[in-house]
């Protein structure tokens, strides 16, 4: 198939932003320099119409990341082949730089729960998830990234620490990892674990993208709302993460109560500054 768009890759030294309908006009007018734009894949599953026309227009200027919320990689239900076919069609049309999904489940018995639900981390589930990641990669004809999710509950049947589980999925299937630093932080606070131990378990060469986001403090623990500025502790953890992983394309997620484009760009600029100082430290270290 001949390419319809110039090949573009995210700049690991720069953050990207989520592309949201509310910002279409402003982005088209101001055309800021951005590492990449990320969309929720399912929002562009339409057969035609303005959503796709807009996305194609932005794709001409930017690298695009397709971030799926619905493939249900860890479900006991069979993979939804129609959903996967729509994802493949979109990827063929947009030529994205990155395609990612979540390490979670969301459908059972044909009913979709519209939420990223946690998996038990056991050898059996690991094998099941790896089979499915491999089959998705085969169908799409490309590598995908899998993201660690926020788990508000943990299972008694889990036997593998989350970091090792994620790392093993990548090792066995050749997929990459989308490290969500906010999810790692929230899980560590809610369950009294060590977020850096989770990150240390990952093979740096497999981490293809980082997510940051804001959340909310509630009586039942931290909740990943994507509707607030990034927690200071998450910025600090991000800094430690890239000190270990090197600069990685980074995205600040903001999905509800979406602010003005300028607020989003300011959060991205904060990530840029941390990425830049990390790169500088690394090069000083190399020179010394």
């Amino acid at each position: 198939m001949t390419a319809r768009f110039p090949p573009r890759a995210p700049d690991p030294r720069k953050a990207g932003i989520g592309l949201r309908t509310a910002h279409f006009e402003a982005l088209a007018r101001s055309r800021p320099a951005l590492s990449f734009l990320e969309v929720h894949s399912e929002n562009y599953f339409a057969d035609g119409g303005p959503s796709l026309a807009w996305l194609e227009r932005f794709r001409a200027d930017h690298a695009v990341s397709l971030h799926g919320v619905g493939l249900s990689l860890g479900s006991a239900d069979p993979i939804d082949r129609e959903h996967l076919a729509r994802l493949a069609r979109l990827a063929g049309r947009i030529e994205p730089a990155l395609v990612s999904e979540h390490l979670c489940w969301s459908s059972i018995g044909g009913e979709h729960l519209s939420e990223l639900l946690p998996l038990p981390y056991s050898e059996e589930v690991l094998a099941h998830v790896c089979d499915r990641v491999a089959s998705v990669q085969e169908r799409l004809g490309r590598k995908i990234l899998v993201e660690n999710v926020c788990a508000y509950v943990r299972y008694a049947s889990s036997t593998i620490p989350e970091g090792e589980f994620v790392a093993e999925v990548a090792r066995r299937t050749g997929c990459g990892v989308l490290l969500d630093v906010n999810n790692a932080w929230i899980n560590s606070v809610n369950h009294g674990t060590d977020a850096m131990r989770f990150i240390d378990a990952l093979d740096p060469s497999t981490v293809g993208e980082i997510h940051l986001a804001g959340g909310e403090v509630t009586a039942d623990g931290l909740v990943d709302t994507h509707g607030a500025p990034v927690f200071p502790e998450v910025w600090a953890l991000f800094e430690k993460a890239i000190a270990r992983l090197g600069a990685v394309p980074t995205l600040v997620e903001w999905d509800v109560d979406i602010p003005e484009l300028a607020v989003l760009l300011a959060e991205a600029a904060k990530a840029d500054a941390i990425l830049a100082s990390s790169i500088e430290r690394a090069s000083r270290k190399a020179a010394a």
């Binding site: 599953f45 493939l71 459908s107």
Partner: peptide
Amino acid sequence: CPPGGADLNRY
């Protein structure tokens, strides 16, 4: 009638 697919745009 719970959603029968993951895409909420079609729910």
